[in-house]
Amino acid sequence: MIRLEGNRLCLRTFVESDAKSLAELMRNNKYFWATHEPLHEEEFYTEEAQFKKILESIHLLRANREYSFGIYPKGSNKLIGHISLYAIKRLPYNSAFIGYSVDEKFTRKGIATEAVNLVVQFAFSTVKLNRIEAYVSPKNNGSIKVLENANFIREGLLRELLYINGVWEDHYIYSLLRDEYRHK
């Protein structure tokens, strides 16, 4: 298990016993998150499906291909979001993507920004990446603000990148390079 400590948050990689709380987080935010990502089949929101996802993430972690963290308030076991460093590619790329979601009740409190900064620090110092990328919907002002607060740079617009709930959606691509990173 990997733990990252922030000022207000603790991030830790998921373990099998997190399946119930992860399924509950997914169910509670199903429609809130569906404004910017696809709705899933009902089975996705079950403890069994999340258990399988956690097993897969543990396998990918052991292969240094993905790090999936739960987001918790410091000193609490209450899961309030998740964040992943995923699709890790080694040289000649040495890059990865970052993605995150926070429980609707905890948005607009700087939680995603703190979590992104913790994972960025981990990505550059421990995983030794050179570049971190993120896709974000032009309609997702909250997530755009999170990335820009973490010093990510908007590189361009990817047209009709993702098929979300019956519609092809454009997404911005943002990136942060190791040389641009400023430890906070």
Rank of each mutant, 00 (worst) to 15 (best):
I2V: 13
E5H: 12
N7L: 07
N7E: 15
L11M: 03
L11S: 07
L11Y: 01
R12C: 12
T13M: 11
F14A: 08
V15E: 14
V15A: 13
V15G: 11
E16P: 11
S21Y: 07
S21Q: 15
L22I: 11
L22P: 04
E24R: 15
M26T: 04
R27E: 06
R27F: 00
N28W: 02
N29Y: 08
K30D: 04
Y31S: 06
F32M: 08
W33Q: 01
H36R: 00
E37C: 01
H40T: 03
F44I: 09
T46W: 06
E47T: 05
E48G: 06
L55K: 11
E56Y: 10
A63D: 15
E66L: 02
Y72R: 06
P73C: 06
G75M: 07
N77K: 06
K78S: 14
G81D: 01
I83A: 02
K89S: 15
L91A: 14
P92R: 14
F97N: 09
V102H: 07
V102D: 06
D103Y: 08
E104T: 10
T107M: 09
K109L: 15
V116E: 03
L118T: 05
L118P: 01
V119D: 04
F122Q: 01
N130S: 07
R131F: 12
Y135L: 09
V136C: 14
V136Q: 00
S137M: 11
S137N: 03
N141T: 10
N141A: 06
I144D: 01
K145D: 05
A150K: 02
N151L: 11
L158M: 14
E160I: 02
L161Y: 13
D170H: 07
H171K: 08
Y172M: 09
Y172D: 02
Y172W: 11
I173H: 11
L176P: 03
R178S: 08
E180H: 10
R182Q: 11
K184I: 02
